[in-house]
Amino acid sequence: MTIKDVLTPGECADLLKLISPPNDAAWPTATVTAYDSSQILDPKSRFYNRIFYTSRALADCLLERILPHIPPDVVTLKDAPDITGQFPIIRNETWRVSRLRHELRFLKYGPGQYFKPHCDGQFVDKDGARSYYLTVHLYLNGAEDVEGGVTRFAVNFEDPREGKLDINPTAGGLVVFQQRDMYHEGVIVTKGTKYTMRTDVMYEKI
Results as ranks from 00 to 15, higher is better:
residue 109 Y to H: 06
residue 144 E to D: 15
residue 167 I to L: 15
residue 65 R to Q: 01
residue 130 R to I: 13
residue 84 T to D: 01
residue 146 V to G: 07
residue 94 T to P: 08
residue 51 I to T: 13
residue 3 I to Q: 01
residue 70 I to K: 10
residue 83 I to Q: 13
residue 66 I to H: 08
residue 173 G to Q: 09
residue 150 V to W: 05
residue 146 V to D: 01
residue 149 G to I: 08
residue 31 T to H: 00
residue 167 I to Q: 03
residue 17 K to Y: 09
residue 163 G to P: 02
residue 140 L to F: 04
residue 185 E to D: 15
residue 93 E to N: 06
residue 103 E to D: 10
residue 25 A to W: 04
residue 97 V to S: 04
residue 35 Y to R: 02
residue 55 S to D: 03
residue 131 S to D: 03
residue 20 S to I: 09
residue 23 N to P: 09
residue 61 C to G: 00
residue 53 Y to C: 06
residue 160 P to R: 11
residue 102 H to F: 05
residue 84 T to G: 14
residue 79 D to R: 07
residue 115 F to Y: 15
residue 72 P to M: 14
residue 15 L to C: 13
residue 77 L to E: 02
residue 9 P to C: 00
residue 1 M to Q: 07
residue 186 G to D: 05
residue 169 P to N: 04
residue 116 K to P: 03
residue 69 H to G: 00
residue 186 G to H: 06
residue 66 I to V: 11
residue 170 T to R: 11
residue 27 W to A: 03
residue 75 V to T: 12
residue 174 L to Q: 04
residue 66 I to N: 02
residue 24 D to M: 00
residue 7 L to S: 00
residue 206 I to K: 13
residue 163 G to L: 02
residue 176 V to S: 02
residue 196 T to D: 00
residue 196 T to G: 13
residue 123 F to Y: 11
residue 180 R to C: 01
residue 51 I to M: 14
residue 167 I to K: 12
